[in-house]
Structures are given as structure tokens and as C-alpha cells.
């Protein structure tokens, strides 16, 4: 990929925009279309694009496969943790209403956290898949 100058320049421009858009989709999911799943997929695209243009070895320097695997588990555990926090606060599993002082802000907090969990797991899993198919 040494000589694909246009690809490299365009990718360098696009990757931050893709990540920013993914974060927008993640945090704007409460107000418009989007949410953790879509944001995770879009966020992983930034890494996959980097891997496609600069090579898997460079991508491994940016984010190591071990880190990605840990993050995939972390996202799921975050989701489950929010559920357990509901039990510990005196509600049911995944009942967010008991997480904060009033039910509505509890719901907001719960949704924010579980969407973050979904986003992290989905993004990491997509990068795991890319690593699995692309690693030499």
C-alpha cells in the first residue's frame, strides 16, 4: 500500500470524521435514529479502514487484539453490571428507574450506560472479526 497516495490521504481525512459521526450516532440515539449498535459498527469502520489502507500490522500498533478482546467483554459486562446495579438498588434486573433519585433520570442514566456497553461490544467484535479474517 506504499504508492496509493490518494487512498492514504483520503483515509487520513475520513477516519476522524467517521469516529466523530459514530460518537454523534451513539449519543444522539436518544433523540434521533441511531444508538449503540449502529454507532459501534460505524466506529469500528474507522479502525477497519485504517487497517485496510495502512496494513494490519500498523493497526495492531494502534489497538492491540488483546485490548479489543478485553473491550468486547467489558461492554457486555457493563451492560450486565447496569442490570445488577438495578437489583442492588432494590429493583429488578435491568430496571433503570431505581438507579438515580427520580425514575426518569434513572432511565436516562441506564440507557446511556447500556448503549455505551452495546457500542463498545459491537465495535470491538467487528474489529475482532476484521483481525480474524485479515491477520497473516
Amino acid at each position: 500500500m506504499e504508492h496509493h497516495l490518494v487512498l492514504r490521504v483520503v483515509a487520513r481525512l475520513l477516519i476522524p470524521l467517521i469516529m466523530l459521526f459514530a460518537l454523534y450516532v451513539q449519543f444522539h440515539g436518544d433523540y434521533g435514529p441511531g444508538g449503540g449498535f449502529q454507532a459501534g459498527v460505524i466506529f469500528s469502520t474507522a479502525f477497519i479502514l485504517y487497517g485496510l489502507i495502512y496494513g494490519v500490522d500498523k493497526l495492531r500498533d494502534v489497538i492491540h487484539p488483546d485490548v479489543v478482546r478485553s473491550l468486547a467483554a467489558f461492554g457486555l459486562l457493563l451492560y450486565a453490571g447496569v442490570g445488577l446495579a438495578g437489583i442492588l438498588s432494590g429493583g429488578e434486573f435491568l430496571n433503570y428507574s431505581v438507579l438515580a433519585i427520580d425514575p426518569v433520570s434513572g432511565q436516562h442514566l441506564g440507557i446511556l450506560l447500556i448503549e455505551a456497553g452495546v457500542g463498545i461490544t459491537v465495535a470491538s467484535t467487528m474489529v475482532i472479526l476484521f483481525y480474524a479474517f485479515a491477520s497473516p
Binding site: 440515539g29 436518544d30 433523540y31 434521533g32 435514529p33 444508538g35 433503570y96 425514575p103 426518569v104 432511565q107 436516562h108 441506564g110 440507557i111 447500556i114 448503549e115
Partner: peptide, 15 residues
């Protein structure tokens, strides 16, 4: 009133 999230899809999916 219950969830207070404008996107109904998100409130159904997430809560």
C-alpha cells in the same frame, strides 16, 4: 413520561 427519551425506538430497545 416514563422514560423521557424522545426517540421511541431507543426507549423500547434499551429500556
Amino acid at each position: 413520561t416514563e422514560i423521557g427519551v424522545p426517540n421511541l425506538v431507543t426507549s423500547v430497545l434499551a429500556s
